[in-house]
Every structure is written in structure tokens, then in C-alpha cells.
Amino acid sequence: MTIRLVSLDMAGTTIDEGGVVYDVLASSVANAVGRPVPSEMLAAWTGTDKREAIIGLLTDLGADPGRADEVFAAFSGRLDDAYAATPAQLFPGVRKAVRRLRKRGVKVALQTGYTRAVAEPLLVAAGWRIGEDIDALVTADDVTASRPAPYLVFRTMEATGVRSVAEVLVAGDTANDLGAGVNAGARYVVGVLTGAADAARLGRHPHTHLLPGVADIPALLQDADEFSDEG
């Protein structure tokens, strides 16, 4: 059985936005509660739905989680401004890797803790179109719970017509990305080192492989005889 779907996280994995989202998230929560967000506390919420992260951080800091809508609105506005000032782009080698995977018959889907309103403009900035450059996009709006729940992964399977988790590779740059892949039962759960965590931190969490980046996934699958490199 070969890999038929590569299910990829967005920011920090395929799209380089310089870690802006977590800077904005931390500062938005800090402004609301009047004190900084400890880095380890923030790390626990990386890769998750951003509204869930705000609720979690407010609760962790002893603040009123009922303020989540207010903080999320401020976060969303500041994130839009940050992305307008510094447009996101694909990490080096990602475009070529995805083309190669799709040429070999592998579906490639993006899944993210962003809302669709945030994710789709990022795709435009990266020069990617759904149905032409990638096969599907699944966002936090599409599931009842974000990572480490497996639902984002399952929705990418549904969107691409892949029925067996034995045919799925999940990749991301955070512990919660890996947790979603493990909870989904994916055959490959790959941590990439382009984003929020280094090898030592990411390696503490269950995974099948650690790679420098998404650009290295085609070689991993070729070496494992998961698809032919002919053509």
C-alpha cells in the first residue's frame, strides 16, 4: 500500500510567515490580561485553532475566558495588518516538492488552525490555487475540535477521497500537529524543523520521522518505495 495523501500544516510547515501568528497571539492576550504570556505556556497552544488557543491562554493565565471573542477580534485585525505588511511565502523547495508529489499521484492537502478567512489570503499570497496547485484546504471552521484532535486530518482524507489512514502522511512543525497525526493513526507522522520547534523539542513527541522541511518529503517516500520516481 502506497501513500496517497500528504496532509500538511500551513504556517511554519509549508508557508513561511516568520512566526508572526504567535507573536501576534501572545501580544494580543498579553494586552488583554496586562502581563506577558510565558513562552512555555504559548508553546502548548501552537498548532491549534486560534480561538481555542485564546480561550486556553486566558484560562491558563487566570483571566476570564469570556473575553475570548474580544481578544480574538483584536488578534484577527492585528494579524491581517501584519500579513499585509510582510506577505507570507512558501518555504524553499516546497512548491517543487508538492508538484513532484502530485505528479506521482499523491494528493496534497493543507490543514490549519486558522479560519478560512485567514487561510485563503495566505494561499493567494503564496501563489497557490485549490484544485490546481493543491488538492484541498481544511480550516478550523470545518471541524468541531482542532489539534491534537484528528479531525483536520480526517477532513483532508474526506476532501481527497482517501479512506485508509495507512495511505496518509501527516506533517507539521508543532507538537499538536504531530499529536493530530498520531491520533488519526496516520502511517507517517513527520515533524518538520522549519517552524515553531527545534529537533530536541519536537523529538520528544511521538512521530515517525523528523525532517528539515516539507521539501524532503518526496525523497523520504521514494526511499521507502512509496511511489515511483519515473517520469
Rank of each mutant, 00 (worst) to 15 (best):
R187V: 12
A136S: 07
D173K: 08
P148K: 12
D229S: 11
R51Y: 13
P92G: 15
G34K: 14
D173I: 00
R51F: 15
S228G: 10
E226S: 10
D198N: 02
E120Y: 10
V190S: 09
R4H: 10
G195F: 04
A199I: 04
L211D: 05
V71E: 04
D225M: 01
S146G: 12
I15K: 10
D69H: 05
T59F: 04
I54R: 11
G195M: 01
W45S: 02
L152M: 09
D177Y: 03
G19W: 14
D81N: 15
D9L: 00
E167I: 10
L137C: 07
R67H: 01
G131L: 08
V153Q: 04
A97H: 10
A63L: 06
A44C: 10
Y188A: 06
V29I: 10
L61P: 01
I15N: 03
Q222M: 03
L221Q: 05
P36L: 05
M157Q: 11
Q89C: 13
T115Q: 12
T59S: 14
V37S: 00
R99S: 05
K107W: 06
F91W: 09
D81Q: 14
A85S: 03
V29Y: 00
A26F: 07
P38M: 04
A73G: 14
T59W: 08
K96N: 14
A215R: 10
R100T: 13
A53S: 07
G105Q: 11
R102F: 11
A84T: 15
V143E: 10
L79T: 06
R187F: 06
K103M: 08
D229V: 10
G161N: 09
V165A: 15
S76M: 13
